[in-house]
C-alpha cells in the first residue's frame, strides 16, 4: 500500500511542477475570469456575469487539468516510464489507480481557484448547497474528458498527443460556450453546441448557480459522451499495450 501512496505522491509532485498544468489549468482560467467580468465582456448585469462566467471558467480550468493528465500518459509512454513501473512490484491496477487519483485530484485546484476568485473578488454569493453541488458536478463531470484525454494519450505519441489534447480542449471550450456564451452564436452553431459534452457539462452547473434544476437532456448527453470516450480510452489502451 505504501507503494501506491508513494506513486500518487510522485505523480502529484510532477503535476504541481508542470508549467502547462499551472498555466492552462489554474492561472489562465482565473485571469480570463477576471478579465471577462471586470472589462464588461461577459453578458448580462455584473452579478449575472460574475456567476455565469465563474462556472464557465471553472469548467474550462477543470477540462484543462483533465486533458493535461492524458497528455502526461503519452509522455510517460514515450519516456519508457510505464515499462519502468511494470518492473517494480506495483500491480497494473495500482498504476492505473494512481493515475486516476492524480487526474481526479488535479482538477480540484482548477475548480477551487476560479470559485474562490468568484467568491472573494467578484463577491458571488450562493447558498452552501449550491456551492457544494457546483463543486461536485464540475468535479465528477470531468470524467468523460479525462477518458478522452487518456485515449489520446494512449493512442498518440508525446508531441502529437499534447497537440491533440490542447486542440480538443480549445474547440470543446469555445463551441461548448465556455469562453463566449452560446446566446451570441449563429443558430446552426448553437445547435451543434447543444450536443457537445462541454456545453452539457457546464450547463449542469449554470442551472444550479441560477437556482434551476439541471435538465435530463444534459445528463443524458454527458452520459452518452462518457460511454463513447470510455470506449475510446479502452481502444487506445489496448493499442498501446500491443505496441509498447
Amino acid at each position: 500500500m505504501s507503494g501506491l501512496m508513494g506513486y500518487i505522491r510522485l505523480e502529484m509532485i510532477r503535476t504541481v511542477r508542470d508549467g502547462g498544468y499551472v498555466i492552462f489549468g489554474i492561472a489562465m482560467p482565473v485571469v480570463m475570469y477576471l478579465v471577462f467580468t471586470n472589462l464588461g465582456l461577459a453578458p448580462g448585469d455584473r452579478h449575472y456575469a460574475a456567476v455565469f462566467t465563474m462556472v464557465s471558467m471553472a469548467a474550462y480550468g477543470a477540462l484543462g487539468g483533465a486533458f493535461n493528465n492524458g497528455t502526461g500518459i503519452a509522455e510517460d509512454r514515450a519516456a519508457g516510464w510505464l515499462r519502468q513501473l511494470r518492473l517494480t512490484p506495483l500491480t497494473p491496477a495500482q498504476v492505473v489507480t494512481g493515475k486516476v487519483v492524480t487526474g481526479v485530484a488535479g482538477v480540484v485546484p482548477s475548480i477551487a481557484a476560479v470559485l474562490l476568485t468568484g467568491a472573494l473578488v467578484n463577491h458571488v454569493t450562493l447558498a452552501p448547497g449550491q456551492w457544494l453541488s457546483i463543486v461536485g458536478l464540475l468535479w465528477a463531470g470531468t470524467i468523460p474528458f479525462s477518458l478522452l484525454g487518456l485515449g489520446n494519450g494512449y493512442r498518440l505519441t508525446g508531441q502529437t498527443a499534447a497537440m491533440a489534447n490542447v486542440a480538443t480542449l480549445l474547440s470543446l471550450s469555445i463551441i461548448g460556450g465556455l469562453w463566449v456564451p452560446t446566446t451570441g452564436f449563429p443558430g446552426w452553431l448553437r445547435a451543434i453546441s447543444g450536443w457537445t459534452p462541454s456545453n452539457s457539462y457546464a450547463s449542469l452547473s449554470w442551472h444550479i448557480a441560477f437556482g434551476e434544476a439541471p435538465t435530463l437532456r444534459e445528463v443524458a448527453i454527458l452520459c452518452g459522451w462518457l460511454v463513447a470516450f470510455g470506449l475510446y480510452a479502452v481502444y487506445g489502451y489496448r493499442r498501446a499495450a500491443r505496441t509498447a
Binding site: L10, R14, E75, A79, W81, L87
Partner: peptide, 15 residues
C-alpha cells in the same frame, strides 16, 4: 525478487 534496467528510458521529468 527482480530489479531491472532496460536498455533505455525509464526516467521522467520534473522530479
Amino acid at each position: 525478487e527482480v530489479g531491472a534496467m532496460p536498455q533505455e528510458g525509464g526516467l521522467i521529468p520534473r522530479v
